[in-house]
Design a protein around this nucleic acid. Structure first.
Length: 548
RNA sequence: GGCGCAUUGGUGUAGUUGGUUAACACGCUGCCCUCUCAAGGCAGAGAUCACGGGUUCGAGUCCCGUAUGCGCUACCA
């Protein structure tokens, strides 16, 4: 294809110092990696918080790269400066760290950077100039208004929208026409000259889905954005082809929404004389909205923002385990240790968008926390609390033995509990053990005692306290509750009460409940014997005697 | 409108080259345990594999069509 513009004319469109392709290609040589090593990247845009789907794709990519002896990196796609949200990068960094998806490579330790697209401006210019030289691109002076107008007309005519055929008004401008518009100072974009003629069908292989057939691209898409902007940045399509080639990526893992753009990308690789890079398109995470399902949305769903998990205190390991299982159910059947170290296979990944189910995540997370070694659990809890509940952090730090005992209780097979799905539940579940978080119940007519009358509550409390022995077996400890129940006309076992409720003032359950409320301030709690053990004799008596 | 991707119990999935009663986990229900709530144990409900055609002795598994959902059709990614 011959350019309608002379080489000299094209050169003047760019800085005289702009390097030739050969410069970049020697600067970014192929990576020296073993056969089968996968180099992949996660490429988020700093236009808001990090999406759960982002962690999903990133952790899969990292798994693929690391298990193949390759490399995983993060490239910030900040080519849309208008939509950039301040603080996104910091949020990203926090999330990457939390979910162990930090980049292997960065500007300091790798020669394939920089890792932010806004810093790669010259690269795109070099290749845009190259495309101009080979006639695969041309300057376009259409304004946004003109473009919008065209789209409107096309919609009214019920024909395909886009910049193609006779609608591609700048496609065949002569050098003289281009020159005069430049003279008058009109800003311009650089557009891709898509292949001539009616579009054919293209076929390509997706690493997850296999063969895909699609109508070929016929749109002259924008490659380089308007000349009146600084820096002058590329669109996603152009940046992807240039960057992933020169950063020597060999598997492009990205969301399914890109499948429709593959034909265009393939044309770009060809026009630039680059080798196409294999794609793996991942199905997006979904969510229920009434009866229908839709993509998990940043705007509507708070669980779409990874900050939700960090702030609530879901352990990263639990979230990652769930995410891996969503991508490939083989992982869901594994233990946490196995799934964390097993290699993912793209072919085994699901092709339908899975529903992201918070209930299932909670169940997994509960199991995960219950399996965490005591010191790890404590460390994780403390790390969370220091950030989001400093009062709790301080209390825990000054009661470490108690905190350890609580986790030990949880892990004791005889009394195993799985009360915690996330760290922000610690307070409600176990705050009762800490004097600082517990306010004694002093009102005997507190509704929580119902149906036991206030007078009886006082009697039970007094009776319990006066004869209290801090027994160290469960049976002996509960024996005191039984005698307390009998002494006050309550059935000493639930069974007896169930049989003949009319013979008793109530069941042992009522008595236990009264003591429970006094000891814990709660109507549901762990085993009362356990509570007493953790509290210690002094504190048990103090709490029971708080009744006035 | 055009194009693409998807569709197995409430949810996520497993179902090897088509072959008997469609499997697992979560959730749900009941029972047991029991001082409450969990946890645990046991049992159970719940899928004519979106629908309609076809190929075949036989289809969740192959082919065609339809529907529905999702996505792309931007100087957003």
């Amino acid at each position: 294809m011959e350019s309608m513009l002379t080489a000299d004319f094209i050169n003047k469109l760019f800085d005289a110092e702009l390097p030739e392709p050969s410069h970049w290609e020697s600067l970014y040589p192929p990576r020296n990696l073993p056969d089968g090593a996968i180099v992949t990247r996660f490429a988020p845009s700093p236009t808001g918080f990090l999406h759960t789907g982002g962690v999903y794709v990133a952790t899969l990519g990292k798994n693929l790269a690391h298990h193949s002896g390759g490399s995983y990196f993060i490239r910030i796609e900040d080519t849309d400066q208008a939509r950039e949200v301040a603080g996104s990068r910091e949020q990203f960094a926090r999330a990457f760290k939390y979910f162990h998806i930090e980049s292997d490579e960065n500007d300091a330790n790798s020669k394939w950077g920089p890792y932010e697209q806004s810093k790669r401006e010259l690269l795109y210019h070099t290749y845009a100039r190259e495309l101009l030289r080979t006639g695969h691109a041309y300057p376009c002076f259409c304004t946004r208004e003109e473009l919008a107008q065209m789209t409107e007309e096309q919609t009214a005519l019920k024909i395909q929208t886009g910049y193609y055929g006779t609608w591609a008004r700048c496609r065949n401008l002569s050098q003289a026409e281009v020159s005069s518009r430049l003279q008058s100072g009109k800003p311009y974009t650089i557009r891709f000259r898509s292949p001539d003629g009616p579009p054919n069908r293209v076929e390509f292989v997706d690493l997850i889905r296999g063969r895909i057939e699609h109508q070929d691209n016929m749109n002259d898409v924008v490659l380089l954005k308007s000349s009146d902007q600084t820096p002058r940045l590329p669109t996603y399509h152009f940046a992807h082809v240039v960057d992933d080639t020169l950063m020597r990526v060999n598997v492009v893992l990205r969301g399914e929404e890109w499948i429709s753009s593959v034909p265009l990308h393939l044309q770009l690789f060809k026009a630039l004389d680059f080798l196409p890079i294999p794609y793996a398109h991942i199905a997006p995470l979904m969510k229920f909205d009434g009866a229908s399902r839709r993509k998990l949305s940043k705007r509507k769903d708070n669980e779409a923002d990874v900050a939700y998990y960090i702030e609530s205190g879901y352990p990263a390991g639990a979230v990652l385990h769930y995410l891996r299982g969503l991508a490939n159910s083989r992982f869901a059947e594994m233990t946490f240790e196995e799934s964390a170290s097993a290699a993912l296979s793209l072919k085994e990944c699901g092709v339908a968008g899975p529903i992201f189910d918070l209930v299932k995540l909670e169940s997994i997370s509960r199991e995960f926390i219950a399996q965490l070694p005591i010191e790890d659990a404590l460390e994780s809890l403390l790390t969370w609390a220091r950030e989001y509940d400093s009062e709790l952090a301080a209390i825990l730090s000054s009661n470490l033995p108690l905190a350890r005992r609580i986790f030990a209780n949880e892990r004791n097979p005889a009394v195993q509990r799985k009360d915690l799905a996330k760290w922000n539940e610690f307070r409600a579940a176990y705050g009762l053990y800490f004097a600082e978080l517990f306010s004694p119940v002093s009102d005997p007519s507190d509704p929580r005692f119902a149906p036991v009358e206030a007078e009886m509550v006082v009697k039970l409390a007094k009776g319990f306290a006066d004869s209290y022995r801090h027994e160290d077996t469960k049976e002996a400890w509960f024996e005191q509750i039984r005698s307390l129940a009998s002494a006050n006309g309550f059935a000493p076992t639930a069974g007896q009460y169930k049989k003949n409720p009319e013979n008793f003032a109530g069941s042992i359950g009522h008595v236990s409940n009264a003591i429970r409320i006094l000891l814990t301030g709660l109507t549901t709690s762990p085993d009362l014997f356990l509570v007493a053990q953790n509290l210690g004799e002094q504190e048990v008596l103090r709490r029971v005697r708080a009744l006035t």
